[in-house]
Design a protein around this nucleic acid. Sequence first.
RNA 1: GCCGCGAUGGCGGAAUUGGUAGACGCGCACGACUCAAAAUCGUGUACCUCUGGUGUGUGGGUUCGAUUCCCACUCGCGGCACCA
Length: 946
Amino acid sequence: MQLYDFRAIEEKWQQYWRDNNTFQVEDASSGKPKFFALIEFPYPSGAGLHVGHPRSYTALDVVVRKRRMQGYNVLYPMGWDAFGLPTENYAIKTGRQPADVTAENEANFRRQLQALGFSFDWSREIDTTDPKYYKWTQWIFLQLFKKGLAYKANIPINWCPKDKIGLANEEVVDGACERCGTAVEKRDKEQWMLAITKYADRLLADLDTVDYIPAARVQQTNWIGKSEGIIIEYEVVGSDAKLACFTTTPVNFGATFVVISPEHPEVAMLTTAEHREGVAQYVDAYKRKKSEDRFADDKEKSGVFTGSYVKNHVTGESIPVWVADFVLMTVGTGAVQGCPGHDMRDFEFAIKYGLPIRRVVVGEDGDTSAIERPEQVVEKGAKGVMINSDFLNGVEFADAMDKTMDYFEEKGWGKRTVQYKLRDWVFSRQRYWGEPIPLVHCEPCGGWVALPEEQLPLTLPHVEKYQPTDTGESPLSTLTDWVKTTCPQCGGPARRETDTMPNWAGSSWYFLRYCAPEDDAMFTRAHAWTRPAIELVDKDKQIWDAYLETRARFDAAGIEHWVCGTLAINGLNRSVWMHMNDADVVVRREDFERARALVTNSELVHIIPSVGDALPTDYEQVHRCTLYGTTFRMISPRWHVGHYATRNKNEMDALKREFLAAYQAEPVNYWMGVDWYNGGMEHTVLHLLYSRFWNKFLFDIGASPVCEPYNRRTSHGLILAKGGEKMSKSKGNVVNPDDLVAQYGADTFRAYEMFMGPFDQHAQWDTDGLIGVHRFLTKFTLLSEKVSDAVADRDLLVLMHQTIKRVGDAIEGMRFNTAVAALMEYTNALNALSAVPMEAYRVGVQLLAPYAPHLAEELWSALGNTTSVAYAAWPTVDEQYLVRDEVTYAVQVSGKLRASFVIAREADEATVREAALTQPGVEKWLEGKTPTKVIVIKGKMVSIVL
RNA sequence: GCCGCGAUGGCGGAAUUGGUAGACGCGCACGACUCAAAAUCGUGUACCUCUGGUGUGUGGGUUCGAUUCCCACUCGCGGCACCA
């Protein structure tokens, strides 16, 4: 007989949860606070789940199970990101339909996930390949198209000759395809592009409003790559032509040459007859080089003189224009001013070709001597002062840059500008297994025409043979019947777009779909409050101007007034009150942009006025607006102005409730944003950026209620195979959870995944470690035999409450491993008792429930409970039991531990000090000397200084 | 090169604001049960030249006291990279 019969227990409770819809979410009318936890939905590969997947799922399952016990209405959904190459490739190889393969894989994943006892609400399962789902993916694309944010461009794309697919820049790693490692070729192809760069500034600035782990924030910031500088127009000597150079550090008194990229469109124009041959040779050689050779680390600088000169505005000198491959056409203007005194690359170039080096910045030590020494080059952001720079001499470096930009703008020689590294998103793929792009091409109508929205979804046609073509066309292009269609605009003959969307599309908005998975009018139903009749940009300005006017009026009248906004700061919605009479308070326009997202669960309500609504002219005025067919009194057009001391609180509360009910009746309004999103580091750049972009766009057109989708983003470490290598099919080191669940049970597996190490760090899989956790659960099970009606003494209550605190804090802080350790310690302590008081045992079962839910349910019901432990109240910490009556003091003599003693917690300092000095063993170390100092740290230690 | 993260027993790892380093678990040793083994349970387990001393990657510093704070390094992991 088995002491801990996990097989029977787990089967029984999984059945129970299914039969009772235990984890089905409620709607806003539940009155509970909401909690939306999200994990990255998996790609259902043929290999099935491996031990890495459940790490993230278990962690948030632990969190949401605790939240449910704390009274939250929890949304913890699961679905399938099922479009993608592996399925298509597998289908090609086996001659099967991708849809069939996908359905099989999903069934396998679902079985595996359910065997692990995750508390997903399976009634909300979504699938990106389901036409009911991708109808909305297509709808979003159409909106982007209609707003001019989707456009076709003939640009050289990265072509993977093996996968026969165009890759986005971000899918190319070291010049090779990210998936298969094949060297990438450049090919010209008309591609659909999404103008994510239009959102670059907001994607960057709004990172301040969310709580992302530092690595995610840094990677997003770097990828967007904002740099502020100036574009300087150089006059070409002896010609009317101009040459633009971008720089962030205009040390122009030190500019002694200009370098342009071999790909620069003006290369030919700038090359004089006598240099034509040399330049042509250089450019040809460059074009023949593979991209990885162009970017080799240790490559020596090379270049060639064009024969042309441009005029340095500030020195009046004519400086030569060179062509060199270290200048990239994709950065800035593709032309740089060479300032060898301050830039390492320019310095190397100048040394090689004997160009003049003029130092214009000196370090704080004032050293001007060693121009030849590379280590003396002043890098960007350096501290130092200007020299050899006429009117800038003696000016601090950073100030000098500002002054130079001012000066150049004043003279009309240049214009300040902001550059981003971020490029637009190459959005089309020449593959079958993706969302069809819902556009047709019609010559008479002048090009691309959107399908009417009521014709969505445009479903993938059935294809017998869907191999990718060598021509770069999608397999869909071979279906002449499908391609030939009529133009929805003019009714004439037209051609369908045959490219499909990339893998990233479906996952860029799935969090919204989880809020309303069956809603067939998802984004098209009237969302009165978020649908501005005019463009947001104009409206923002209008409101901002009106705000300034209002403020001026209040200031003039000497009335104290406030602005309230609920800003998402560090993942929390906080009321921010800004006292507007205080001249020091600066409210940035961006804050108000964010404030649009602030309609909230718990804080003051903000109603966005429809156009034409007047702004309040004084604090008594109450406005009205219409929402969902009901007229509400409007207490705020995005901010509150007024004397809060004199406002009737009850009236305001009633208004708030009234508004909230109407607002939250829309599920997306109720559930968004995601309160906690956990996923892999491999998705912290692209998926996160793309989904933030789509959500922002949806926010702007009124389809998402929040301008940032994820309030909190965390990441788990990878689970590696035993040697520290990544698990992969090819290495044959993949561990499948099925075997482990069969041998030890899902609860053991879950608890071990949490116990094996810090959640955010990589961990090496070690099946031996499972045994320890299994023993712990067995030991816990056996406690039930010792439960009695004995009363817990104070020491036990202290331990119990400390454990409640430790487990709770650890879960919130993602230190899941220490929570398990605390439970183990608690179990060991209870096990050491001859009789276990019921209270202490019951708390143990409750604390265990998030980690080992099946076992906890079993033990909970054995205690006579008839409802699920999933909704049992989470134990609360009673502060009075966090300290013991007696405390142990350590005694240090000259910094070394020499003794310890137990004394009443209340003992005063003098008593503790006396006790310490008279401890046996302490005296010996005092060597008869009188201590110069005795430091008593209350409740902890006594430090004796000789 | 730049940015971020990290380094603690044989192993995975603990340690609120500086306050008894090594919790918890694995492994190992010994013991109980067993004809025996597995499983299970119990005890012990940082190191050393052991009345004491040394120990949290290295070298300094601040402090009565440093894994924790400061300075300078070394190594490892991740990201970006001729970004002007």
